[in-house]
Design a protein around this nucleic acid. Structure first.
Length: 734
DNA sequence: AATCTTAGAGTTTTT
DNA sequence: CTCTAAGATT
């Protein structure tokens, strides 16, 4: 028997070997979901049930797709090529390029980012004289996205699905938006799914060809699918009899936390009805967490109604461990100190920082912890946040490349026409738009025409002419010099890099570095078009997870990850569960918040520390907070409560905390001794030390001068932020 | 056309 | 408090 099967437990093995017919695998947190999915994939190939090109494997994230590809290759012992393996969006983009004409598009259509989408919609609303004060474009955009999430093209939006917007004009504006997208040969993210579903619905021959191609379908994170993704899967899976419907969906209803993005938990709850004769396999042996952690998580999630039902049990023999700690604190500052202190304690015991995480409900909560960790000199990284390809300088550079690749890309042209400043203001751009609309031509064409006819003043004319000539030159150089060289030339000659070189703000240097990184990344692709597609679909974060740092992120960002020690701060009514969620979605949202709490707890392997503060600083003012109802829902047997009186302490009792800002200095003393005894020996000697007096630059604090140095910790007097203690790797010589 | 000032909003965001 | 987007000013 094949070696890869023997490494599975019986339930996992059932999930892998039930190859024919619909199968739903309910995989609890830490039960080996990815292993099952990849082994099943490999099993289908190894047993010759299908060729690699006959399996469709869908994930939500590029990360998951990449991991699956790697693990399948590892089992097969060779690179997994020619697979239809990727995210919903990437696979649909591939299909849409094949059948672009059926959607009224050219095969080289552009995929717009949210920025471009909003600008396009705003333009339409302004042109239609709609009061954008009364009717925010943002609201219409979310309505359009919801429609797209449901697979509703403008003509499919029924009155029941309509929204109250600009006196019943929502549908009309949506239709116009779609028309404009076609005009500029572009699609947005929602279109990738919706247009493909529309093609499959209206072209039976196309659907039939995919039915012949895909013999097996594998879906990851099924609980997060929205309606249009569900429709896409169902269309592809429902092959005409006698062909079996070999669709295997893996998911966990208890980890459905994206309903606000259109995910329908109903999809997973309804699976057995959608696919009659379906087999359901439950993976319940958890190999990740200790018994108390699993017990606490199970007790909490049991409060939810409408679950598929599933109980995690420890899959390891050594599952005993510390109880989940619930710590009550006076205020949010004390909470940050508590977390910081425990991180240092762990560090002293030899725990790795990369095995610790602070998971928060909302992004703004990370700040308090960042500041505390900076003061303590503990290295950290914030996961999520702004992504590389979302930064302004990268988007600008991308816009230049998009115009180079597709001159008809009006949105990209508009973005860079006056970046850097060329004296091309509102008047010129408005004239360009008017001409473009009148002639039904792209902006670039209209711009050329304006120069030829002289319908423009001398100064802007010269500037515009230089830019257009530039594009002609760069485009012409492309086949000769290659896209990497041309990109560098373009950024120089357009004056774009100069713009940042002359910028005196503290971020400018980083932006120039990012541009260099962009040019490097382009080199990894054969063509410019290939690179642009990659960027639109694979917005990877350029973080090295290897680094020995504490991770700070939202609970949403933490799904799928695991750590030895997990801190879950801010369990207070209003914050978690979040008030806005409760107001908008009532009981349903409360259950989703609870699932989020469940996701948080189950990230922990060994230690889970939950906390709440009685007073919290928000938007500059203090307000008191009631402990989260979720704290009461944790089963007492698995929980140890600490400082319970803390939440009710009076000011007198909490007085010491007002001075405890000094404590770390005292507390650090013994730690230095300990560090000297063995911890330092493990760390490689540092080479490029930063001397006292050196002027340095820090991402968060800007410029400053080093006033003292101790090991890798520097005391820096920052020009703006004042005196701070930072880790030397966080600053660079200025 | 570029710069300064003020008003308003601040949950989560796999693509 | 702090950031962004718009309107007002030079």
């Amino acid at each position: 028997m094949s070696d890869y099967l023997t490494r599975l437990n019986p339930e996992q093995r059932a999930a892998v070997e039930t190859v024919d017919g619909p199968l739903l695998v309910l995989a609890g947190a830490g039960t080996g979901k990815t292993r099952v999915l990849t082994t099943r994939f490999a099993h289908i190939l190894m047993t010759r049930r299908a060729w690699p090109s006959q399996v469709l494997a869908v994930t939500f994230t590029n990360k998951a797709a990449k991991e699956m590809r790697e693990r399948v290759s590892a089992i097969l012992g060779q690179p997994a090529e020619g697979l239809w393996l990727g995210t919903f969006h990437a696979l649909c983009a591939r299909m849409l390029r094949r059948h672009a004409a059926l959607a009224g598009l050219e095969h080289n259509f552009t995929i717009l980012d949210t920025d471009d989408q909003m600008r396009l919609l705003k333009q339409i609303m302004v042109a239609e004289n709609i009061d954008t004060k009364r009717w925010p474009p943002q609201a219409l955009m979310s309505a359009i996205q919801r429609w797209k999430d449901k697979g509703l093209t403008p003509d499919r939006v029924t009155t029941a699905e309509d929204v109250d917007f600009a006196n019943g004009r929502a549908r009309d504006l949506y239709a116009q938006y779609q028309r404009r997208l076609k005009d500029v040969n572009a699609v947005d993210f929602g279109d990738l799914l919706m247009l493909v579903v529309e093609i499959l619905r209206t072209n039976p021959d196309v659907l039939a060809s995919y039915h012949r191609t895909f013999r097996y379908i594998l879906v990851d994170e099924y609980q997060d699918t929205n309606t249009v993704q569900y429709l896409w899967l169902r269309l592809l899976a429902q092959r005409p009899a006698p062909e079996p419907q070999n669709i295997c969906c893996v998911g966990d209803d208890d980890q459905s936390i994206y309903s606000w993005r259109g995910a329908e938990i109903e999809n997973i709850l309804r699976f057995e009805r959608d696919f009659p004769g379906a087999t359901v396999v439950r993976l319940e042996s958890n190999y990740r967490s200790t018994r108390p952690i699993l017990g606490a998580a199970a007790g909490l999630i049991a409060q939810n109604n409408g679950r598929m039902g599933k109980t995690l049990r420890p899959g390891r023999n050594d599952a005993d461990g510390d109880k989940v700690r619930v710590v009550s604190l006076w205020d949010s500052e004390e909470e940050a100190r508590m977390v910081g202190d425990r991180i240092e304690q762990g560090q002293r015991r030899g725990d790795r920082l990369s095995e610790m995480a602070i998971l928060v409900r909302a992004g703004f909560q990370t700040r308090a912890f960042e500041e505390r960790l900076i003061t303590l000199g503990v290295p950290y990284r914030v996961v999520g946040g702004q992504k590389f390809y979302e930064r302004a300088e990268i988007r600008d550079a991308m816009a230049y490349l998009r115009v180079l690749n597709q001159p008809a890309d009006d949105l990209a042209f508009e973005r860079i026409v006056n970046t850097p400043k060329r004296g091309l203001g509102e008047t010129t751009i408005r004239a360009m738009h008017a001409l473009a609309r009148q002639e039904g031509k792209p902006l670039v064409v209209a711009a050329w025409r304006m120069i030829e006819t002289g319908a423009i003043r001398a100064k802007p004319k010269a500037a515009l002419h230089e830019l257009l000539e530039g594009f002609a030159r760069w485009r012409e150089a492309l086949p000769r010099e290659g896209h990497v060289v041309v990109t560098a030339t373009l950024l120089d000659e357009s004056g774009y890099t100069d713009m940042w070189k002359q910028d005196k703000s503290p971020e400018a240097a980083g932006r120039l570095d990012n541009l260099k990184e962009l040019i490097r990344a382009i080199g990894e692709f054969d063509t410019l078009a290939g690179f642009l597609e990659h960027v639109a679909l694979v917005m990877e974060n350029d973080e090295n997870a290897e680094a020995e740092r504490v991770s700070l992120m939202t609970l949403h960002a933490a799904k799928g990850l695991e750590f030895d020690t997990v801190f879950l701060p801010g369990w207070e009514e209003g914050l978690f569960p979040n008030q806005r969620a409760l107001d908008e979605g009532g009981e349903k949202s409360l259950e989703e918040e609870r699932r989020l709490a469940y996701v948080g707890i189950t990230r922990a392997r060994k230690h889970c520390i939950i906390s709440h503060a009685a007073n919290r600083q928000m938007y500059g003012t203090w307000s008191s907070a009631v402990p989260s109802r979720f704290l009461d829902e944790l089963p007492e047997a698995h929980v140890e409560r600490e400082g319970g009186a803390g939440a009710h302490r009076n000011r007198m009792a909490s007085a010491p905390s007002a001075f405890s800002g000094q404590f770390p200095l005292v507390a650090r003393k013994p730690r230095v001794i300990e560090a000297g005894s063995w911890e330092v020996a493990e760390r490689p000697a540092r080479t490029a030390a930063i001397p006292v007096g050196q002027r340095v630059f820090h991402q968060k604090f800007g410029y400053g001068r080093v006033v003292a140095a101790e090991d890798n910790k520097l005391d820096v007097e920052f020009e703006k932020a004042g005196r701070k203690r930072v880790i030397d790797t966080f600053v660079e010589k200025a």
